[in-house]
Write a protein that binds this DNA or RNA. Structure first.
Lengths: 183, 183, 183, 183
DNA sequence: GATGAATGAGCATTCATTCAT
DNA sequence: GATGAATGAATGCTCATTCAT
């Protein structure tokens, strides 16, 4: 039982790193098995298929982040404070595990389409905050801008255009987002 | 010569659409050949390889856009006006060919790494404008925010979260970007 | 001991049904284990291998049937009565367990080749009867016809071409066989 | 074009022999490719899949035989003569290509289920003859007996229990079948 | 006796690319 | 220029079997 769980986690870690580095289609099950030091067939003891594995990893972490985001922003009043919380949370998440973050970003489009609608979804959480505040002309446009600012600068850190950690930019990012949303 | 050129363009159009729909790795040379009504081998008369084809298509359109962006922003003075030009250009480009836009977005990371550094590059163009203006605390961070705002909202239009055309949002996007950069 | 025996029989029943339904190669050890509610490894407590299991099941039932056939036909005199016994026995065997019958039919070619020659064998039993009678021109040809008539009509019942039970046709089958053998 | 057709036929011949010898599941695409002296991928230029290949080969030959059987028996009057034709045709078919015959026999159950009902089917052809004659008590039972006599003795030849060619037994088989049907 | 994770060879199939026609 | 058959390595996945617990 214990051994099985450890192997599953080993597979997850190795997969995420390989997917980010070489792409989902560029990473074979054989690659993953070699990176883990397990046999190919072993992967299928823990995941139904490569595709199911990606979906499982994505859903687990994306839902957990969305849930945390919803709770953290619910604890404070006013868009400024909520945005501050969101930015801090987002940056910490990126800095703590940039590889996981990159993986989630990489597969989000394909996976979000297949995710059950009732699960917590970061985009909807943010949109609700902006809409409740009411200052933004078009809440969805403002939501897009907020997410765009965070995501693109995270990518800039990953690509070396910005010097990390991303958390160093929390105050500036918060100010920029508020500037955009209330423009 | 003319017939050859027509075939080459037919391959480009079909490829871009298929790549966006099913992914680069999810689209086989056979898929492309079938969509074009040509034989598989014919593709290799016009492109050295599938990979070279992608690179060629990307470079051609990305460089052209970056070039246009550089010229359009050079015609006016002041960041406000330059941003207005940039936003209008970006939105028009998206609306005129969302499929091409989606394709460029999809392959940008992988392709930008391989692109010769001396070719015009939209990110550098924008960064130069922001840096010259001087109002933004960190020019690269502001550049990321600008690009993020535009790209993410374009994606929102593509995914149906925002009702298109993207050009309808030019004034708001311009205001939001200026709000972010000068915050 | 008792529990072990019960498990072994459970495995046999489940295997026979699965083999008939999905073929020997189409049925995995995992399929069998799931159908029995046991673990995959448990099967190997009772059988040396999948192949050995098939051989064991086949031999057990085929030999038992051949033995019974030899005994039942030895009790009466004259080919007519012997054929009548044989037909009745065959039909009862089919009707009592069509799944087992189908399984034996399915694997007979492969298994008969590997069966020790000294074990009772239905074909030899029948051939001996026909040869002793002497009326058939070629005893082996007549043996083939007898077996063919029984087996093919059993298959017709299984496939729904004939309405069962097969035992309803005992008199007609007996007459047809005698008609063929003495023609 | 010519080269392609030749390769396809080479694949068919090699497949049939291998399937009969080692079973459908026991024969890998690699086995077939090696036996043909072609690459594995080449097989897929000519057949959509291994399964489709089997279906195609079966249908082609089984339908052709059934068609010939229908025509040959339609040329003469009276069940005796029709049976004589049928037996002669069946034996010739076996003797001319015992390997093909064995293959058709081996896959018939699985393939007949999937064959379009409107295609000629040997069983239905024979059943119609028997039913029209009217002498047999149960036409389907008699049909089963006829087919059983022919098929089982063909198998006996294949297994060496009867010395071939099967055509040597045409008169006796005809007599036996008539004996069975009119018993 | 029972378990089920682990194995690794084997499978059918796909695919970018080549080349004789 | 165009074709499409041929290639063969690579892919995701299955499976009978083993073995530590």
């Amino acid at each position: 039982m214990k051994r099985g769980q450890a192997t599953k986690e080993k597979i997850e870690r190795a997969s995420i790193a390989l997917f980010l580095e070489k792409g989902v289609n560029g990473t074979s099950v054989r690659d993953i098995a070699e990176a883990c030091g397990i046999a190919e067939g072993t992967l299928y003891r823990h995941f139904h298929s490569k595709e199911a594995m990606i979906r499982e990893i994505f859903t687990e972490h994306y839902v957990a982040f969305s849930q945390t985001l919803a709770e953290a922003t619910a604890e404070v009043e006013g868009l400024e404070q909520q945005v501050a919380r969101m930015v801090a949370l987002f940056c910490r998440f990126y800095d703590e595990d940039p590889i996981l973050f990159g993986f989630l970003l990489m597969v989000q489009h394909r996976q979000l389409e297949r995710m059950p609608a009732e699960l917590p979804n970061a985009i909807d959480v943010i949109h609700a905050l902006v809409a409740r505040d009411g200052r933004a002309g078009d809440a969805m446009l403002a939501t897009g801008s907020m997410i765009g600012i965070l995501v693109r600068n995270a990518i800039f850190v990953r690509h070396g255009r910005l010097k990390g950690p991303l958390s160093d930019y929390v105050p500036q990012l918060t100010r920029q987002i508020m500037g955009a949303v209330t423009a």
